[in-house]
Design a protein around this nucleic acid. Structure first.
Lengths: 219, 219
DNA sequence: ATAAATTTTTAGGCAAATCTAAAAATGAAT
DNA sequence: ATTCATTTTTAGATTTGCCTAAAAATTTAT
């Protein structure tokens, strides 16, 4: 199926808003995410329904149909592969790559996608630690443990970030924390749950909020 | 200046049709190249003129203004860099890359373009041997000597192809001829100017037409 | 030089994706 | 349960890029 750029972006938006539980998605939520108006969204939902990509009942909400979800995941795969390319091969910072990948993800050539994946060593996770679905749309498993759940004395590995906003990415980059770094939990402040951490030999203090947005694994 | 995809494609089309002599370009020629109708082209030319990208007088023809040419060359730079990436890094055949590069060339990020160029080792020529303009829009020089101009006994290097159509590229690839290969002219058939060549140890026969589409250098 | 053929433009429309404003449906609150 | 607020849809326009058909300009041929 040959989708327009707009159609692809709507599928992606619905995919992300509906989340892993595949909830019904409101017209307004889509409008807000795509920075457009509800009326515009309604038009597009009718169009996507006619194409069989979503199930949509007026006033009820929308969710992706199977075809629609497959397509959305395909775009996500391309997005995350390109982000990996930009960081690994072209030395971009992880906070810079999203915008460029938003363009690259729409390039149509499955051969290109698969060769790119291969060139990158078929990575399972992108530079933010987000899972890259394989060609069949299957996501690799990731522990969804965040740093705020760790305990004093734990030795941890940084696996990713939950919040991929430019602000947070910049903050984390400024601290010098990168994927794969090891961290030791030295203490937790009982007043505000902020954490005292040992990272690359030096000591760091992170707010509970920051910790809740860093994925880690034990060991 | 933020151009639409259509606008970029018109600039490119005018650039190629006008050739190195920067000739006036007919409405019909643009229509044919872009597989569209003359009326549509007229509309777009008026739009491009209003933006200052072309000089255009009704019934006379169109040519690129300085800004328009700069933009066209910028797109060409991106196109040829991406082609180089696809062939050098992703092992695509030179006949496959044009279509994909047509999409990639529209990705907007000068930082991406320059990092890509750097990643590729700032190549001067693309996989077809076509010159890649630098950031400032300056083209590297290429000898414009073609194989049909060579003489018996000449030792030559393959520098590129003049005709980049899929058909011709496939033909040349099938013969096993690649950029940088060396060729010795063993003879020219006086009847039809076809050439007998030694290439990689074996003997080849090429029509005059094929020879006229292969760029070479002496030595 | 005039007629015929060709090229180009103008005029009027269409589809996609967007918008604003108004109407209708739904959900919340008394 | 009825009113009020919110959400969503409908109705009517706009812009971009394209189309066909007809008119106008240019070029070619007699």
């Amino acid at each position: 199926m040959q989708l327009s750029l707009a159609e692809e972006n709507y599928l992606k938006a619905i995919y992300f808003i509906s989340g892993p539980e595949r909830n019904l998605v409101n017209t307004n939520a889509v409008a807000e995410r795509l920075d457009t108006k509800a009326a515009t969204v309604t038009d597009m939902l009718r169009k996507l329904k006619k194409k069989g990509l979503v199930s949509y009942e007026p006033y009820k909400g929308v969710r992706l149909a199977e075809t629609g979800e497959k397509l959305a995941i395909g775009i996500l795969r391309k997005h995350r592969l390109w982000e990996t390319f930009l960081v690994e091969k072209l030395s971009f910072g992880w906070e810079e790559v999203h915008e460029i990948a938003e363009q690259l993800e729409h390039v149509r050539s499955s051969k290109l996608t698969e060769r790119l994946a291969n060139f990158l060593g078929n990575p399972q996770f992108d530079p933010h630690g987000d899972p890259i679905p394989n060609k069949e749309g299957v996501f690799p498993r990731r522990e969804n443990l965040t740093l705020d759940k760790a305990e004093v004395g734990d030795f941890l590995l940084v696996k990713g970030v939950k919040d991929s906003s430019v602000d947070f990415l910049n903050y984390v980059a400024k601290l010098g924390i990168r994927l794969g770094d090891s961290i030791e939990v030295m203490g937790v402040e009982s007043f505000d749950q902020s954490m005292k951490l040992k990272h690359e030999g030096s000591v760091l203090h992170l707010s509970a909020m920051a910790c809740a947005n860093i994925y880690i694994s034990r060991g």
